[in-house]
């Protein structure tokens, strides 16, 4: 499958990314490789094989409903590009 310029622009817009031309080219190349690999997998005969979402035979990993202390918000916001009075600050968005 061919990844077109429109596809890259669309995916970029969904992720709120502004890609430079050369970034678009390399992204196209990489995505095409991934999609083509899926095509190879798609050729395998999976008749009678149940779809799986995990590679490990693990299920039902639970946590009991017990409150533990949260993390200090100074630590939580420490790496944020911008924060104020304990809140993360982001550019204006329509809520």
């Amino acid at each position: 499958m061919k990844i077109t310029d429109e596809m890259i622009d669309y995916i970029g817009a969904l992720s709120r990314l502004k890609l430079q031309d050369e970034e678009k080219e390399s992204a196209k190349e990489e995505m095409e490789k991934i999609i083509n690999y899926m095509d190879i997998l798609g050729k395998l005969d999976t008749e009678g094989v149940e779809a799986m979402s995990h590679a490990f035979p693990v299920k039902n990993v639970f946590r009991e409903d017990v409150v533990m202390p949260s993390t200090d918000r100074e630590i939580i916001t420490a790496n944020a590009p911008k924060s104020k009075d304990g809140s993360f600050v982001v550019p204006k968005t329509i809520g």
Binding site: K82, D85, S87, F88, V89, V90, K92, T93, G95
Partner: peptide, 15 residues
């Protein structure tokens, strides 16, 4: 929750 701060024109985020 997003709270728009009129004074700064920024949006504050509370998780």
């Amino acid at each position: 929750k997003l709270i728009h701060d009129e004074a700064t024109g920024m949006t504050m985020v509370d998780y």
